[in-house]
Computed example of a mutant assay.
Amino acid sequence: MSTLRVTAEQLTIVEHPNADALELAQVGLYRAVVAKGAYRTGEFAVYIPEQAVLPDPLIAELGLTGRLTGGAANRVKAVRLRGELSQGIVCRPAALDGTDLERAAAGGEDFAERLGITKWVPPVPVSMSGDVAAAPDLLPWTDIENLKRHPDIFAPGDLVTVTEKLHGTACCLTYHAGTGALDVTSKGLGAQRLALIEAPGNLYWRAVRGYGLPQLAADLARTLGASRVGIYGEVYGGGVQDLGYGIDARRELPGYAAFDVCADIGGQLTWLDPADLPVGELPLVPRLHHGPFDLDQVLGLAQGRETVSGRGAHIREGVVVRTADGTYSPVVGGRAIAKVVSDAYLTRKGGTEYE
């Protein structure tokens, strides 16, 4: 999950190949359709990303009444306009008149609160919710930003691993070696330092127990001398999200694929490759590339059909890219890791985005 930030950005204007009255305003590698002549290359404007929820007055000011998505027609979603993918909104809201946008861009100022913009949080189905308890010692999540927004996270030739991004719901198991206690949480609950109390019908606990994750975490903690071990994975299947990968999670064990492992060793968090653990084996997200980073190759790998089912049951959500050695990135202020979402996924109809 990426963070929501509404920022000033320097634009590059590109010709729209299919519309004389439209152009494309490029921010990073994102492109948003704008009226021709509204902006020039090098100018600064505000960029509102996908999943942003706009207040009604701003929607009216931007001339977008009835044109956004969601039940209240107030949410930004990627769309195709005259054949070109448009991701986000480029604008200069009246509330920011007099604001030095160039200086705001240099300082990374976030205008979301000032403009009344919030991040969309989808409702959670009963099978993915449940009673919760405080869990202050959960291992942390890593927010994964979009490579199109930050294309300089990686340098050409960096050794990276590219894995398929699955459309399920993220699950984290934190094992506490001192007590043997388990905390199981979702992305949304984990951000609130809450864990799900174990219940037979709960989707996350079904996956954790069904794939033997507690024992593997205990073995890993003992081998590494870790006080805590975190196993991060995607729980998927029909009934979880709109993409099912050939599994019906309502009638059988949901699918599970690990994408990250973290160990707390002497108070220092160490991120491990789940494909190269010293004990046990985990079901893993598919690995599509391990080698030098090439931007065009990564953008291409984000497209196409899923590989989890072995038969390309439906579109691919996208890919996740990370450096093989967990390198720090000053661009995102943390691990060098980013995602790219496929065009077909962004523009599909009837999609779900539960956390």
Rank of each mutant, 00 (worst) to 15 (best):
T99M: 09
F111W: 10
V79M: 06
P93S: 01
S86Y: 08
A95E: 06
I89V: 03
G88P: 02
E113H: 13
R103N: 02
L85K: 14
K77D: 13
A95S: 08
F111M: 09
T99V: 15
G88E: 00
L81W: 10
P93T: 03
D97L: 13
A106Q: 10
Q87P: 00
R103L: 13
G83M: 01
R92I: 02
A104E: 00
D97I: 13
I89K: 03
E102S: 09
A78Q: 07
C91R: 11
A104K: 01
V90W: 13
R82C: 09
A106I: 07
D110L: 07
R80S: 05
I89W: 05
A78T: 14
A106N: 05
D110V: 10
R103Q: 12
R103G: 02
A105T: 05
A112T: 05
V79Q: 10
P93R: 02
E113W: 12
V90L: 10
C91W: 07
A112Q: 04
R80W: 05
G98L: 14
L101P: 00
A94K: 13
I89N: 00
G108W: 04
E84D: 06
G107Y: 08
S86A: 10
D110M: 09
G83P: 01
R80N: 04
V90C: 03
E109K: 09
G88I: 11
Q87E: 14
A95D: 06
G83A: 00
A78L: 08
L81R: 12
P93F: 05
R92K: 14
A104S: 09
D97K: 15
T99R: 07
A78V: 07
V90M: 09
E109Q: 12
S86T: 14
R103S: 06
G98H: 13
D100N: 15
A95W: 09
T99Y: 03
A95I: 08
E84Y: 10
S86D: 03
T99Q: 01
L96G: 01
I89D: 00
R92F: 02
E102D: 02
R82G: 03
K77R: 15
Q87L: 09
E102T: 07
D100C: 10
A95R: 11
I89C: 04
D110N: 13
E113I: 15
L101K: 02
G108T: 10
I89T: 06
G83H: 06
E109R: 15
L96S: 02
E109Y: 09
L101Y: 02
V90D: 04
L81F: 11
L85Y: 12
F111L: 10
G88V: 07
E102V: 08
K77T: 14
D97T: 15
L96P: 04
V79I: 13
R80C: 06
I89H: 04
A112M: 04
E84K: 11
G107A: 13
A104G: 04
F111C: 11
A78M: 08
L85W: 12
A104T: 01
E113C: 10
A78F: 12
Q87I: 14
G98A: 08
D100G: 09
F111T: 08
L81E: 12
E84V: 15
